[in-house]
Amino acid sequence: MLKIENLHAAVDGKPILNGLSLTIAPGEVHAVMGPNGSGKSTLSYVLAGREGYEVTEGSVSFHGQDLLAMEPEERAVAGMFLAFQAPVELPGVGNANFLRTALNAVRRARGEAEMDAMQFLKLARARMKVLNMPEDMLKRPVNVGFSGGEKKRNEMLQLAMLAPKFAVLDETDSGLDIDALKMVADTVNSLRGPDFSALVITHYQRLLNHIVPDRVHVLSAGRIIKSGGPELAQELEASGYAGVQAAA
């Protein structure tokens, strides 16, 4: 369970989130939609613990733990996962080595047995097959020379491998064609269950045709101004953010 209460956050002293509250129960998928500059990416970075995002007020509890007091790697170990909007490239770091290192770091911290190279490769190949990823993407350096779609596929591979309790998708759909969009949706849908929840941050409704959310929230000027069921996404698509902002 993720519980965000009255969250205020600033970047370079400039307030971006202004009293955001949101509760996501286990098993639920929520969508946050909003125009540019409404604070969507700031919310995802605050949840993942990026430096430079200063929480000035409010709290976030994650399965009973104070999320904001945890280091980024502790959040990952606790089951938090952020799928990046613009994944970084890491020259000199092999994708397979990176994935195994991350997986074993998490497993070690959770007191689980580490995976040897054989077990790891077996699992990675199985996940990649589902994601329709060519195997040579394991051998290449992380995201180096990957197309936009390949980078997002690689994010989904990490999501599938690490199997977190909670995933934040930060505009993962931006710049994706319909096949890639379906791949993202399939990955998230395959993880759906009583122990998994997700926050899908998006600009457009189209991803939500494939990942049908339990709740939809509209973010504006760092606060949630309206919440509803999946039909709210359609309403936004029809009337635009301006209509909702004016009504709120």
């Binding site: 613990g49 990026r50 280091e71 980024p72 790697e73 170990v77 996962f81 970084v88 991350a102």
Partner: peptide, 15 residues
């Protein structure tokens, strides 16, 4: 690179 470091840590790898 701070972004690279954050990316690795966000995947559970200690600093």
């Amino acid at each position: 690179d701070a972004d690279h470091l954050f990316f690795l840590r966000s995947r559970g790898i200690p600093e």
